[in-house]
Write a protein that binds this DNA or RNA. Structure first.
Lengths: 245, 245
DNA sequence: ACCTGAACACCGTTCAAGT
DNA sequence: ACCTGAACACCGTTCAAGT
């Protein structure tokens, strides 16, 4: 942005020593941004220290000046992605709907970034954006009259549910081999599983065989809303010793 | 078992060419058994094709005659572990309790085998023992009058919840560095997190700072029973249009 | 202070060659 | 049929050396 004047043509015979270095100086932000780009295009497994370094035109050792290691990089990626979660303005009258909307929003952001939910699953949130999400969840529940102990447990339980569902969701879509139509591939996988269940011995697995359609309906959204509904109703049931019902 | 006579002493000067091969012939069962032993002692990350092969006194290439690759090996490990889950004799009158007991039993078995739940999370159950567990869950709910569609969704949701909780649980215990007392290590980690939360800016995170104790209570069992209770009550609410209440 | 090359101790999987 | 050595194309992290 300082020495480069892209509006001027390169004078003849003036070749850069190395083919277009143009490298920005390494920063933590730049590393995390690059890592998220690799995540989005190729999935979490492709985000290796070496791959990120390569993308930045350097070697893996260079990253260690800005990031303590792979684990920290993954944590930083998660919090960067969490910044995309749109938080609601709490409206105490609508706390249950808002809690469900927020959960749906988190799931939307997670699934928009491949299998990033694997990083969230089973890690204590420490990044500022992740903490802001938890803060709003607590605020919604406290304003709705949920007792502190229950609200604390519920943040954990909701988080586990959202992460697990996002991971489950990406199993199908993310494992598509490159070059294949994701939906076509999914269809194939799906038929295979249905056929497998249908071929099971009916005497040992009468319920599974008899409920193949109910078990393999691929609607991830329906499963998510089902679980979310149950959880939020359950949380709400702790609001008062007995209200009007 | 055929050419070896262990009751006879080795004649003098008769040394085995290689130091005590004594190797059983490689079978899928032996490989899976060995892999689970490595899992139990060192965790899932330590279960590599090379490590399992080494444990069997051979090279990694030898395993590929009995197992298609690492993914299949992990699936086989999961189903072998699932064989330890004790299944109840369905008693329709107690279906809700039995469903909760079964979920608790699954969690017990998962956490007894380190982070095996990571394999379960987001994989469709196909092994015979895993299918037997799903079959009983469906049987319990169907006998309790849960509609098929709800029972199908509930098996998924319950499974996600159990896996997520088991993974969360092993975060603390399984990451203990070798040679350190797990509880001491956990204590330290825990104090660190509490201190971090307490030091957060109270104006941006009033609920988190104000609820540190509720948020960091380490009781995994309480969280599990809380979520389980909510889920099973939610499932039960679909039993009839309106019963006696 | 920041960056790097080279090295260390690992990975999963394939394949031609052996028995 | 089963097993193997060697190789291929990767890993995360460290460390002495450079600028």
């Amino acid at each position: 942005m300082d020495a480069v004047r892209p509006d001027m043509p390169t004078p003849p015979g003036r070749k850069p020593r190395r083919p277009a270095p143009a490298r920005q100086p390494l920063t933590q932000d730049l590393i995390v941004e690059t890592a998220v780009r690799v995540l989005d295009t190729e999935g979490l497994d492709a985000v290796t220290m070496r791959r990120v370094a390569q993308e930045l035109g350097t070697g893996p050792a260079s990253l260690y000046a800005h990031v303590s290691g792979k684990d920290e990089l993954r944590e930083l990626m998660l919090d960067r992605v969490a910044a995309e979660i749109r938080l609601p303005e709490p409206d105490p009258a609508r706390w249950q709907e808002q809690l469900k909307e927020l959960a749906t929003e988190i799931r939307r952001v997670w699934t928009a970034h491949r299998d990033i939910a694997k990083v969230s699953m089973g890690g204590i949130p420490t990044g500022p954006h992740l903490l802001a999400v938890a803060e709003v969840q607590l605020e919604l529940m406290r304003a709705g009259g949920v007792p502190p102990r229950i609200a604390g447990l519920a943040v954990d339980t909701l988080g586990m549910f959202i992460d697990a569902d996002a991971i489950e969701d990406t199993i199908y879509t993310a494992r598509t081999p490159p070059g294949e139509d994701p939906w076509e591939y999914f269809r194939g996988h799906f038929e295979e599983i249905t056929a497998y269940f249908r071929a099971l011995p009916a005497d040992r697995f009468p319920n599974i065989v008899g409920m193949v359609d109910e078990l393999t309906s691929p609607s991830g959204d329906e499963r998510f809303q089902f679980g979310l509904d149950i959880l939020v109703r359950g949380i709400a049931s702790y609001v008062a010793p007995r209200d009007g019902d």
